[in-house]
Simulated assay, not measured.
Amino acid sequence: MRTKLRNLTLSLIVGLALAGPAIAQDDAAIEGVIRQQLDAFLAGDVDAAWGYASPEIQRLFGNPENFGRMVERGYPMVWAPGDVRFGALSESDGGLWQTVIVQDAEGALHALQYQMEQVDGSWRIAGVRFAPVPQVSA
């Protein structure tokens, strides 16, 4: 019994150690996709930004112009982002969510959670929702 418990504990430790680098790789890849989409919006390249959206988002909006219009009207801080900072990557509501803090043109901070999904081995943005802005102490 003691040997089984020790083997189970060792297996869990090894599994977590091996998962750490994979999570870090996903973290970097996810941040890269979000940053590239934000850069595309900032450059006015809606076609490029569209390419980072999941197939479901693309089906929902039908074309890059409709998608761009929705982002410009509904997410102006994403359309013309100022400072961008990445928060935690977490699992909730059946999905993988990356928190992003974006400063808008007036200097206000907005917290957004990007739902991410893998499509053919690449990360794509499957949705964005607003989140409470974390409190920062001086």
Rank of each mutant, 00 (worst) to 15 (best):
M1C: 12
R2N: 12
R2L: 13
R2D: 13
T3E: 14
L8W: 14
T9M: 15
T9H: 02
G15F: 06
G15P: 07
L16W: 06
A17M: 09
L18V: 15
Q25P: 03
D26L: 08
D27N: 07
D27G: 09
E31L: 03
E31M: 11
V33I: 13
R35E: 08
Q36K: 06
A40T: 01
F41K: 01
L42S: 14
A43Q: 00
A43N: 08
A43G: 02
D45A: 11
V46G: 03
A49Y: 00
G51W: 01
Y52W: 10
A53S: 13
S54D: 02
P55Q: 11
F61K: 01
N63T: 00
E65T: 07
E65P: 01
E65M: 05
F67H: 10
G68M: 05
M70I: 12
G74A: 15
Y75L: 15
P76A: 12
P76S: 11
M77I: 10
G82V: 10
V84D: 00
A88N: 12
L89I: 07
S92A: 15
G94P: 02
G95E: 05
G95D: 05
T99P: 03
D104T: 00
E106N: 08
G107E: 00
L109E: 01
H110M: 15
A111H: 00
Y114R: 14
M116R: 08
M116P: 05
Q118F: 06
V119S: 15
G121I: 04
S122V: 09
W123A: 11
V133W: 00
V136T: 12
V136R: 09
V136A: 15
